[in-house]
């Protein structure tokens, strides 16, 4: 699996993202356990390179998908999530000028959100291996949890990370994963010491570089008590 991850990182990251990018998951939780999700993939910092790639048929021997193909893929994601019972108002947006893509939707409970994420993962799985289905979020009483556990093979040691090529390391060092969760009640405690709580105490933000996550130096795992 490590070999697979390394290969994917080496091949895909330099190809698609020659500069920093940012993935943001923002969730607004209501007290009754329902909420809304907004995922934003912002590649605007790399837009000049990405625009150039779109003019090519192949980059580093790999086929470059067309805008139409990518829009079709995004629409597939939207339809997959829309079919999940309890998900509503599912929308996507694609901006091929700024290279910012969003996915948003309302969920009736966190279990539905987990189901939707697993359905998308399954839909996008192009490998012969079965999709690893697991819960990403938990909501119970006055506690919201972001779950994130590496399988033993998914994390790279510092030495293994150094073995990656320059482009892959550079992309991962500059790319960020940001999670923002908002609640109706004030936050009392967060478990992840990298998380920042807003002045109103109703929002929490956690920012990590992809490299830190890959090396296991930090995690997006967080337990928020309110």
């Amino acid at each position: 699996m490590k070999r697979l991850i390394r290969t994917l990182l080496v091949l895909c990251l330099p190809l698609l993202l020659t500069n920093c990018f940012e993935v943001t998951e923002a969730i607004n939780m209501k007290a009754d356990g329902s909420g809304d999700l907004l995922v934003t993939i912002d590649m605007s910092a790399s837009k000049d390179n990405l625009k150039a790639y779109l003019q090519m048929d192949k980059v580093q021997g790999m086929e470059v998908p067309s805008v139409t193909e990518m829009k079709k893929e995004v629409e597939t994601v939207r339809q997959t999530i829309s079919k999940i019972k309890g998900m509503s108002n599912v929308k996507t947006s694609t901006d091929f000028d700024e290279f910012v893509f969003t996915l948003s939707g309302d969920f009736d409970r966190v279990k539905t959100l987990n189901k939707a994420i697993n359905a998308v993962a399954d839909e996008l799985n192009r490998t012969p291996l079965p999709t690893l289905k697991k819960d990403n979020f938990k909501f119970k009483d006055n506690e919201f949890r972001r779950l994130f556990r590496y399988g033993p093979d998914l994390k790279l040691s510092k030495e293994e990370f150094e073995e990656l090529n320059f482009s892959a390391r550079y992309v991962m060092e500059t790319a960020k994963y940001v999670s923002v969760y908002r609640f109706q009640q004030p936050i009392k405690r967060v478990s992840n010491n990298k998380a920042q709580v807003s002045p109103s105490k109703k929002a929490v933000k956690l920012e990590n570089s992809i490299a830190e996550l890959i090396r296991g130096e930090s995690s997006i795992e967080n337990t928020i008590e309110f």
């Binding site: 940012e22 923002a26 934003t40 605007s44 923002v180 807003s198 109103s200 109703k202 929002a203 929490v204």
Partner: peptide, 11 residues
């Protein structure tokens, strides 16, 4: 033109 977060972490 870029993106940032306000103090309540709205993008």
């Amino acid at each position: 033109t870029t993106y940032d977060y306000d103090e309540e972490f709205n993008r």
